[in-house]
Amino acid sequence: MRSMPTLSRRAFLAAGAGSVAVAACAPGARSSTELAVYKTPTCACCTAWVDHMRAAGFKARVNELPSLRSIRSTQGVPEALASCHTAMIGGYVLEGHVPAEDVRKLLAERPEAVGLAVPAMPLGSPGMETPDGQREPYETLLILKGGGTRVFARHG
C-alpha cells in the first residue's frame, strides 16, 4: 500500500494562507452595498440623499422614526456631529450627507472607526443640491472610536 506524502509545516501554512487569500477575493467577501437608513418622515433632503446612494449602486432600506437621537447614541455618533439622517453599512455608521464615493473608500480601506459624518447639511452635498448649483466647501469626517474626528475627505 502506497503512503500519502506528508506536508511540511511550512507547506501546510502556505496552503492555508493561499486559501485565505482566495476567500478574501471571492465575491461574497466584498463589502456589502446594503444600507439601512434612519430618517424622520418629513425630511425631503434625506430622501434626496437616499436617491444619490441608490444611483451609486447602494441598496437602501429606509426606516422612518420620530427621532434619531437614540440611534445616534447607540451607534456612537457624538451630538456635535448630528445631522438629519443616520445610516449603517458594513459595520460603520454614516451621519448626514456623506457622498457615495466616501462610503466606497471607507468600505475599501476599513479603518478602525465608528464611521463617517458630514455635519451641518452643507449646500451642494449629496441631497442638498440647489437649483442654481450653489455649493459650499465641506469635509467628510472620520468618527474615531472615543468620539474624536479627523478629516477623511474634502469636497468643493
Results as ranks from 00 to 15, higher is better:
L68S: 06
C46Q: 01
C25Y: 13
E95C: 04
R61M: 12
A11V: 06
A29C: 12
A87W: 10
E79P: 00
V50G: 04
P66G: 11
K145P: 09
A15K: 13
D51I: 00
T86P: 09
S31V: 01
A44Q: 13
P99Y: 04
Y38D: 06
S32Y: 00
V50A: 10
A153D: 08
R54D: 15
V77Q: 03
L116T: 00
S67M: 07
Y138K: 02
A44W: 07
A87G: 14
T40Q: 13
G76F: 03
G147W: 05
L116Q: 05
R69E: 15
G147T: 06
L7A: 14
A15L: 15
S31R: 09
S31P: 09
L116Y: 04
A82E: 06
C84F: 11
L141E: 03
R10G: 11
G156V: 09
Y138F: 11
D132V: 09
V118I: 05
E95W: 08
R9F: 10
R10V: 09
E109G: 01
S67E: 14
H155V: 08
M1P: 12
D132F: 09
Y138N: 05
L35Q: 02
E109Y: 00
G16K: 09
F152D: 00
T33I: 02
T42M: 12
T42E: 13
Q75G: 00
L68I: 08
R54A: 15
R30C: 13
E101D: 14
M121E: 11
R135A: 05
L94D: 09
A60T: 10
Y92A: 10
P119Q: 09
A29S: 15
L142T: 02
L68D: 03
E139I: 00
S8H: 08
D102W: 01
T130I: 02
F58E: 00
E109R: 10
A55Q: 11
Q134K: 15
P66R: 08
P99N: 01
E109A: 11
K59T: 15
D51C: 01
H52D: 12
V118A: 13
R150A: 11
G90Y: 03
L123G: 12
A44K: 12
F58W: 12
S3H: 14
L7P: 08
A117R: 11
S70E: 15
C43R: 04
A113K: 02
S125N: 01
N63W: 05
T40E: 10
H85W: 04
V93L: 07
H85C: 08
S8N: 08
T6L: 14
K39S: 00
V114Q: 05
N63G: 02
S70P: 00
A29K: 08
G90T: 00
L68W: 04
E64M: 06
S67A: 15
A14F: 06
G147L: 06
L94M: 10
E34C: 02
F58A: 04
A14V: 11
